[in-house]
Design a protein around this nucleic acid. Sequence first.
DNA 1: AGGTTAGTAATTTTT
DNA 2: TTACTAACCT
Length: 726
Amino acid sequence: MSGYLAGLNPEQREAVEAVDGPVLVLSGAGTGKTRVLTTRFAHILLTGRAAPGEMLAVTFTNKAAREMRERVAGLLGRPVDGLWLGTFHALGARMLRRHAEAAGLRRDFAILDTDDQLRVLKPVMEELRLDPKRAPPPAALALIQRWKDRGVAPDRLGAAEQTEFASGRMAEVYARYQQRLAALNAADFGDLLLHMTDILRREPAALAAWQRRFRYLLVDEYQDTNVVQYLFLRLLAQAHRNICCVGDDDQSIYSWRGAEVGNILRFEQDFPGARVIRLERNYRSTAPILAAAAGLIAHNEERLGKTLRPAGKEGAGEQVLVVSLWDSDEEARMVGERIAALRAEGHRLAEIAVLVRAGFQTRAFEERLLALAIPYRVVGGLRFYERAEIRDAVAYLRLLARPADDLAFERIVNVPRRGIGEGTLATLRQAARARGEPLAVATAAAIAAKQIPPRARETLGHWLHDLDRWREIEAREGPVVALSAVLEDSGYLEMWRRDPSPEAPGRVENLRELGRALAEFETLAAFLDHVSLVMENEAENGDDKLSLMTLHAAKGLEFDTVFLPGWEEGVFPNQRALDESGTKGLEEERRLAYVGLTRARTRAIVSFALNRRIYGNWQSNAPSRFLDELPADEIRREGSSAFRRAAARREPVVFLDRAPLTALRSSVPERVAPRPRPAEAVGVGARVRHERYGLGTVRAAEAGRLEIEFDEGGRKRILDGFVTPA
DNA sequence: AGGTTAGTAATTTTT
DNA sequence: TTACTAACCT
């Protein structure tokens, strides 16, 4: 048999060779999922079942797509051309460009990021006279995105979708937002698949053509698919049914982004006769870590069921360490010291990670690491293309490529400062709207007609002239030369060079990096798509640095040593997740804990602090219930001396014996009471208590936001997680 | 137009 | 605590 199948275990091999018909591969953490995926891909090509262009392979991240592409090329011994391999969004965009007219767009439609989306949505909501305080545009955008995730276009908004939010006018907001997007020849991320799925549903010819093309479908991280993605896949698969989905229901942690665990749970019903293959041999972690993770996740009800087993020698490895700390400062110190000790023993920092529930928790660790001179990197902050300077530069390029791109125009018309204020801009918008022309055209007209102040007339006149000149440069000498001309002549680069802030030099460097990235592309249009859909974070340099990141950001990664701090009720599981989503929320939090533990190869150090400083004030928390769910045999407990002293004053030393850690709950004065309260319980008229404002009556409630009239006077808008029933 | 200050709210974020 | 905004002054 072919060499590429040789190193696979029986289940992996089964997953590779089960080529025809629907297949669900349940692959636990560290069970060789990527290997199976890529080998299967290569297997289909090598056995001549399909040509490269006849397979559709979908991932969620560009990183995963790139890895798959490289490894398939490795297996085949040559780079493969013509693959339809990429993220849902990139593939959706690629397909949609061929059907743009059917979606009411032109082929060169722009793909919008969040900034642009808000730039479109805000005026829509203003026009409808919606109070941005009561109905914040970002919240409205989130609602629209959830609809899009579920495949609900404005014309499919049923009565069931009614929401109190924005005085019940969200349907109108959504419809107008979509109209504006069409008018701007733009699609947001959600549209890429929404439009494409709509087209596949509406146009049998298009559907048949795509079905004929894609003979085999391969889907990564299936547990994270949302409804549109599911519909998209099902439409494409329904003719030949050669669909293979790989995923792990225990690692579904993105429900708040529209992911439906239900998709993977329902697979066998959706695709009758499906084969389900479980990959349970774990090649990553030691036996105690796996046993701890397995014991924890076993507390979830909603799962297909699967138990990780160590692939190698049984029983080897250290227990998971659970450390009790008195407060969050002490926790940061403990983590810092242990990292320093590991480093002194010769462990590489790049093999150590600190994984937290929420971004704000990283700060305490950063301070300690700085003090200890331990190099670290916070993973998952702003992505490269989200940086202001990159967005600005890209907006210039967009305006060169598409003179009618009003969103780009608005972003940079006054960057660097050209003395164009809200007043002038309002005049221009109005002129553009009245004439039905793009802002750039309307601006030229407004200058000629002297509708704007002399000063603005002059600078804008020059600017428009410059834009034309840059376009000529682009046509003559290519995008790279044009970009440097733009950045120099517009004064944009000079603006950052003169900026005294410490991050300014980095921004200049980022712009240089943008130039290097641009050089890789033939056309500006190709580059612009790349920027919106594919552009990566700064190249991860090979420096030996500790990683600091959220649990979400850690999915898919692995480290020798993993620190898991902040296992406290309210923090992890996160209170808001519990309040908003009840048991489902708790189960997702538990999956997050499972993801965290399974990142560790040889060492996992879980910790909790009884007192934590959050937003400047101290709060006492009970140890996380997840601690009690770790099988006692697989963990070893330790307490700091400060903890021991403090705990001893209240109760016998709890942490040394096997009493549940949560026994501490009764021993700690709980300033913040646990809130096992379903969100619906707080309705209009309910009496509630707020930590700061005291008692009050709920006057309005929508989407988890309450408007409360407090007895002490004043109406305030409060998130429902911040009040308790009175 | 643009900078300054006071008030307010506070997960997770693959594209 | 910080970060963001909206109102307010120059």
